[in-house]
Design a protein around this nucleic acid. Sequence first.
DNA 1: ATAATGACTGGGG
DNA 2: ACCCCAGCCATTA
Length: 133
Amino acid sequence: MPRQDGPSFFTRVYHVVRLIPRGKVATYGQVASIIADPQAARTVGWALNKLPEGKAVPWHRVINAQGRISPRRYAGAISEQRQLLEREGVVFGADGAVDLEQYQWEGLDWPDIEELERGWATEPPGRRWRLGD
DNA sequence: ATAATGACTGGGG
DNA sequence: ACCCCAGCCATTA
């Protein structure tokens, strides 16, 4: 159950990830920190794993703290995600890691994100703007 | 209510 | 760089 009122943890994860701009990345821990607890990084990963198809959330822009793509049960996921990122201009080093100094998203504070969400809820569908994509 | 699970993380060896 | 381990956490595959 939610630790507090409002959107579930998963929903909040989606709200955050949706704001990561093209060509930028965020770490699981970073997303978790924005929401509340930096130690909930694993849960962020799980939330993305359970992301419904066609959810308009750039899940591929979330990588681990080492700048690498986290392995899953489906082996091909690595190259798949890497391809999506490279398509946006993200360059991988020989060790398979990206330079976080260069590509990591600056991030936003939770209150600001919440406000953006509220704005989108009241704004006419056609006039919504988005930072990512 | 409990145990299990997983796209994490930081620290050690 | 690589492998292992012990915390940590929301949700329930």
